[in-house]
Computed example of a mutant assay.
Amino acid sequence: MYSAVRSILFRMSAERAHEWILAALSRAPAAAGWFAPRVRAPESLAQTVLGLPFAHPIGLAAGLDKNGVAIPAWYRMGFSFVEIGTVTPRPQPGNPKPRLFRLIEDEALINRMGFNNEGARAVARRLEQIRQLGIHGILGINIGKNKATPNELAHEDYLLALEQVAPFADYLTINVSSPNTPGLRDLQSESFMLDLLKAIEPIRSRHSLPLWIKLAPDLPNDEIERIVDALATSPFRAHLGLICTNTTIERPPLSGRYRDETGGLSGRPLAARSTEVVRIASRAAQKRLPIIGSGGVFTAEDAYEKIRSGASLVQIYTALIYRGPAVVGELVRGLDELLARDGFANVGEAVGIDVKG
């Protein structure tokens, strides 16, 4: 059924289709169930990570639903956790259009959205309404700084956004790795991250929130190792995790007509590098920090590779665009079969099994 809908959506521009889907799912969350059977997670996939109980490892990555308009629909699709955002303290329109492009032959996307969102206050109001409806599920909120805020004042933006959305989150993600906000990736340093973690600790502890740091795939390997070690030895490590990775500005060989557009590349071409970063981070963390693997996951085998490389959880985005809602159940069922094939009683036993000291 989704293939027929996709053929219609792919006649629209990528961003128009994106907006249309979000509007439809916002108005009719149950429509998500028309395209996929209900996901039933086997006990073998359940685990607790940073104090939160995940029914299975598959979650929705940030970026697809920046303002949290379709949260009930994502849970209906079967995701065990949903991450919205990136949310900035003040509203901003993002970069000029067009800014989202499909590379159909590559099963990839290029985006230069630029943190377009309604701002933390508006998102918080929407989340309060959703809570009143009794919608339950693990919700992550990804926060970032406004484009106009200079880097020397970036910590103030993260604090402002956090103060607004923290009451409605199960976890927070600190985004310092988007390629579409000028200078943002310069904040991927041990000193800035540790200073920021110290600054936001009073708010974080008040709400008992786990924090995830989202890393870029374009960092040199030795820099990834230094950052991970600094975080893993910090006073904040007990409630801290890593998301590997954001989109990439690198361009492997691509076939899609929009391959030369600027912005962050996601989808299949990112898979190998994101898994490599998971492996590097896992080795450096030495089980002191959990990892969410994100980038190029389309099949259960893709997700399983990230898990065996050190990821406890896995996020998808681009696969949902190309494969539709049924992909969530396919990943869950496939992971259960792969664990059984390899003799693992539960997913936790497989996490990092391929990573050597």
Rank of each mutant, 00 (worst) to 15 (best):
Q164Y: 03
E107R: 15
Q129K: 14
I130M: 12
R131N: 13
V69M: 03
R125G: 09
V69Q: 00
A28M: 14
R99Y: 00
D65L: 08
K147Q: 13
L64D: 05
P150V: 02
I135V: 15
M77D: 04
G63T: 09
P91I: 11
L103W: 05
I138Q: 09
L64H: 06
P167K: 15
F81E: 05
L133V: 07
D106K: 10
R90N: 07
G144D: 02
R131W: 11
L160S: 12
F79L: 10
P37K: 01
N116T: 14
K145Y: 02
N117E: 06
A154F: 03
I138P: 09
H56A: 13
L100C: 10
L162D: 02
Q132K: 15
Q47T: 05
N95M: 10
T88W: 04
P42I: 14
D170P: 09
T48E: 13
D106V: 12
N151S: 15
R40T: 15
L50F: 06
L109D: 00
I143D: 06
G63A: 04
R121P: 04
P91R: 03
G119Y: 01
T149F: 06
S44W: 02
E163S: 14
L159E: 05
A32Y: 06
G114P: 03
L127N: 02
A70R: 01
R126C: 11
G94P: 04
A55R: 15
E105S: 13
G33R: 12
R102G: 05
P98V: 12
T48L: 02
G85D: 08
Y158S: 08
V123M: 08
E105T: 03
A154G: 01
A148E: 11
L45G: 13
P93E: 04
E156V: 04
K66V: 15
L133P: 02
L109Q: 02
A55C: 04
L159D: 09
E83Y: 04
H56R: 14
I138G: 05
A70P: 08
A120Y: 02
G85E: 03
L160Q: 12
R125S: 10
I110G: 01
Y158D: 00
A32S: 13
L103H: 02
E152C: 14
A36G: 14
G140H: 01
R99T: 02
A62P: 14
L45R: 12
Q47Y: 01
I135P: 11
W74A: 11
V165H: 07
W74P: 12
N116S: 14
P89N: 12
A122P: 06
E128H: 15
F115K: 10
G94M: 07
K97C: 07
